[in-house]
């Protein structure tokens, strides 16, 4: 049984949805943060992919592209000890109170 990400040839009758959403700032920041950390050799593309592939299948299918990226980034930052889960949780809460 291959992973949920391994989609080549999987039965799928859906037409290709060619509509396009405008990227949000947080999506651009996610992409760029990964790039900066990669330049600094703190993470690799394959670590990011591994983090994405470790998302539970139902969750993988529900999340949007950069939601998967950012979830993987969070996993990697915590795993590498660059930030702790508690720090991210606490800061996200501060931002919720600040910005709504």
């Amino acid at each position: 049984m291959s992973g949920v990400h391994d989609m080549g040839g999987r039965p799928n009758d859906d037409p290709i949805d060619q509509s396009q959403h405008i990227l949000s700032d947080w999506e651009r920041h996610t992409h760029a943060m990964v790039g900066v950390l990669r330049e600094k050799r703190l993470i690799t593309t394959d670590e990011l992919r591994r983090g994405i592939e470790s998302i539970a299948p139902q969750e993988y299918e529900r999340l949007s592209y950069y939601e998967r990226w950012s979830a993987s980034l969070e996993t990697l930052l915590v795993e590498k000890g660059l930030v702790t889960q508690e720090e991210i949780d606490a800061r996200a809460e501060v931002l919720r109170e600040k910005w709504g």
Partner: peptide, 24 residues
């Protein structure tokens, strides 16, 4: 009208923390 999703808050939180720690 600024309103962040939970995912956006977490991304911003990560960036702020990495900056404060001097990582990025």
């Amino acid at each position: 009208d600024v309103e962040l999703s939970e995912r956006a808050r977490r991304v911003l939180a990560m960036e702020e923390l990495l900056a404060e720690k001097g990582v990025v």
